[in-house]
Amino acid sequence: MGVKFFGQFLIAHNHVLADDLRKALQMMEERKKSFCALGIEAGHLSLEQGERLVELEKTCILTASQIAIDEGMLPVEVVEDLVEEERKSRIKIGEALIEIGALKDENHLASLLESFHVEQAEYDFADLNLPGGLAGHILAEYVADFVPKLAEKVSSIKLKIDYQEPVEAASYEVVASLVVYGESALRVHLSSDRIFARDLFYGLTACLQEADLEALQAALAEFLNIVLGNAIAALERHDITAELDTPVLGISEYGKEMTYFSLASTNGKATLGLEPL
């Protein structure tokens, strides 16, 4: 269940050991050459320029290659060559695992990659054409795509979201929200009645005991955490990084920038709110 990366898949299915993966990751790390190191090695950057680039990279969201162009340190053609060299210096996890003998050969790797892609197919990107300010927001699209899939996995709740028809904010009793920071920042808000939250709670805890409002809100929050964590993991496949905050409980409504969608379900009523930040 959930989004996995290839190494994790290999361990989960006993194809490699955690120690093998660790060795492979270490090998990848050792082989990898940074943009700055390559620039210095090729004589395009002085040691001082390289160190300055490393420092600048730490303090802003731009990569060293982008900074090198912006600061006029290197011409674009040289930067492109160095970026290509940097890419070539990176070996993939599968290649590293073959090299250390944890996987047999290319054929073995190819068959495992195929199984991995089959298992992960349901988490491939779905283009949902969200309306208004959410159009083209890749994380929002993942979230909207994952909410029904994960609700069914977690609690067997079948639901549909009408993405094309936003609704007014509904003042349901149980509410939780969660913020994702980074390149694809987003606030996600889930609000439901007690029936929906209770069934989610039953699924998440595998327990049929009564839950008070706080426990129900915590269940909604944990569900959002699962959806967003998996969405962030999927986002990394597009080389977009994001950070997950801890959940906020009980804030029933946000500002006008939040778009709400009704969740049609046989297990109570709920709305999903999405706000690009």
Partner: peptide
């Protein structure tokens, strides 16, 4: 929920996580 994130999972393994 973030364990499927390659960067986090790799970091966890590097720091000694067994799974």
């Amino acid at each position: 929920s973030l364990a499927g994130s390659r960067s986090r999972a790799e970091q966890a393994f590097k720091l000694g996580a067994v799974q």
